[in-house]
Computed example of a mutant assay.
Amino acid sequence: MMQKKKLLDIVRDKIRVKHYSISTERTYLYWIKYYILFHNKKHPIEMEKAEIELFLTYLATQKRVSPTTQNQAFSAILFLYKEVLGVDTKEWNIQALRAQERKHIPVVLTRDEVKKVIENLDGIYNLIVSLMYGCGLRMNEALNLRIKDIDFGFDKVYIWDSKSLKDRTLPLPQKLKQRLLAQVQIVSELHKKDLADGYGTVYMPYALEKKFPTAKHETKWQFLFPMKNISQDPRSKVFRRHHIHPATLGRNIKVAVQKARIHKRVTSHTFRHSYATHLLQNGFIQELLGHKSVETTMIYTPCRGGDEQIEGVQFA
């Protein structure tokens, strides 16, 4: 007799069918489980608007979570009802006490500070951060680059399925072109070794692995910034080489900032903020940043109007 699947297993399957990231999968499963436990393991199909509002209000008033965290929990619960249980929640008009939103002014580095941080980064981390600043990339956009995404003939960088599932192209910083060519060669040689050792496959997005079953072995699909070691994919359990972990890049940036003796709160996203602020001296950059809303880009406008001028994309 076939055993009935547990609810969280069904949620996990639905998330993977939707091709959500592993981090989104973990976040959604966490909040859905928390929601169920909060209501003493009552099945979600037996709960409606009141239970959702009670849980979200609890997060805001008792747990004092941030607005972002509360929104994550809300998104996970909506996914559960809409995608898994097939319940239309639009008519519920869910109203809960919202976590107090704080407006954060983006931390921006001067060009000299950017240069100092990059100079204190070694090897591949130096190249990644230089590219992030030179193109205004989000950290995940940089780490998810494949060899095929760098067009050396037309000097373009292609960003696929980024935030809001938007694609865009960016000018390739000329000062990085030779270093990136060298990085492609390094990855190509590493890929040959992996293939010889019985590995060499790479994670393929969406349904491409089924549509192009041999593509996962091809050099052009390999990550531009791969990990040093082979690791096991948490979903497929296949051993292969993934891209550098975000936490590893974050640690290297933190150490570099300390060495540069910069007393600002610097994260990987700070280089995107700095890129935006520096370019605003020459004009409007919503398209380059890939912002969905003009209001998102406008958070940088108070910094506009400096005396320095730049030509194109400049970086240390």
Rank of each mutant, 00 (worst) to 15 (best):
G86T: 05
D112T: 13
R138M: 09
E53N: 08
Q70P: 06
L131E: 04
G136V: 09
K115A: 14
F154A: 14
L121C: 12
K156F: 12
V65P: 05
K82D: 13
I118R: 07
N140G: 07
Y81G: 07
E51M: 01
W92K: 08
K115Y: 09
E119Q: 12
K103A: 10
K49W: 03
D161T: 00
G123K: 06
I150M: 10
V114D: 11
Y158L: 13
R138N: 09
F154Q: 14
N93P: 00
F79Y: 11
K103T: 12
W160E: 12
P44K: 01
Y133D: 02
I36K: 02
A73L: 04
A60G: 11
V129N: 03
H104F: 06
L131V: 03
Y28Q: 06
W92E: 11
F38P: 06
I128S: 07
E46I: 04
N120V: 00
M47K: 07
Q70K: 08
P106I: 03
F55A: 04
Y158M: 14
K148S: 09
T68W: 01
F38N: 05
T89M: 12
I94W: 08
H43P: 10
N126P: 01
H39T: 05
H104G: 05
K42A: 12
A99C: 03
L37A: 13
K33E: 15
D88F: 06
R138W: 11
F74P: 04
I32Y: 00
M139S: 13
R98M: 08
N40A: 09
E113V: 02
